[in-house]
């Protein structure tokens, strides 16, 4: 069964149509790129899947259910915001995740923190922006979730951090789970993706596999994307 399904999904903010009649499905075991320019509706879609927004019409289903308590237990979400309370330490954050998510694997998080050289007693406040982002990613990827929703994980990070993030995603690949990565930096993620979804002005314009696009177009998804979305 599809892990994420949108049926005629629309979301309006006042007069602005952020998502317009979106239909799509994502199957488990796939790494999917949600690709579109800034303001195309990527974040809106991810927020709807997390229950942080309510659809104006249509529906969005996670593992067959509307977003709520049950779906939140199987969705691991990395927002494009820093959400870690500054006063907490890395260890307290792990306690917190362990308390609320039964699929959180502490050993995994500890190992990744150690590899990054972050001490568990370090406060979020003391960490650099880049370290905070990595700690957030570690917490999110240390869950054995069914659906990972990563909103702009590589926006504004240096190349070394980008490699670290992509490597972490591959390392944690699980055939039972789907990963959705939203980004406008396609060249950087293209080779870790199975499928791509093109989104523009709130509409899904294409859902295809990376190698199908490369095979049919004879060029990379990035090049294809640039042509489709050229201003």
């Amino acid at each position: 069964m599809a892990i994420l399904e949108c049926k005629a999904l629309s979301k309006r903010f006042g007069g602005i149509q952020a998502l317009d009649n979106v239909d799509l499905t994502v199957e488990p075991g796939r790494v999917v790129g949600l690709l579109g320019p800034n303001g195309s509706g990527k974040t809106t879609m991810i927020k709807l899947a997390n229950g942080l927004l309510t659809p104006s019409s249509g529906e969005i289903l996670v593992d067959g259910k509307k977003p709520g308590k049950d779906t939140k237990a199987i969705v691991s979400y990395l927002p494009d915001k820093e959400y870690l309370p500054e006063w907490m330490t890395a260890k307290q954050m792990m306690d917190f995740f362990e308390d609320f998510y039964s699929d959180f694997r502490r050993e995994k998080a500890m190992e990744m923190l150690a590899r990054l050289g972050v001490s568990a007693d370090m406060r979020i406040k003391q960490m650099s922006k880049g370290t905070r982002e990595k700690v957030q990613l570690i917490l999110v990827m240390s869950r054995e979730a069914r659906l990972y929703l990563l909103d702009e994980p590589i926006g504004g990070v240096d190349p070394a951090t980008r490699d670290y993030i992509l490597e972490t995603i591959i390392r944690n690949y699980n055939p039972e789970a789907a990963v959705i990565i939203s980004t406008h930096l396609i060249a950087d993620v293209e080779q870790v993706l199975d499928d791509v979804i093109f989104i523009n002005n709130g509409r899904v314009t294409l859902q295809s596999s990376v190698d199908d696009i490369r095979g049919e177009q004879g060029r990379s998804v990035d090049q294809y994307f640039r042509e489709v979305f050229k201003c």
Partner: peptide, 13 residues
Amino acid sequence: RDEGYLMHTLPVD
């Protein structure tokens, strides 16, 4: 605020 991204995605009602 931003911490809401954490709190509202916890599996609690």
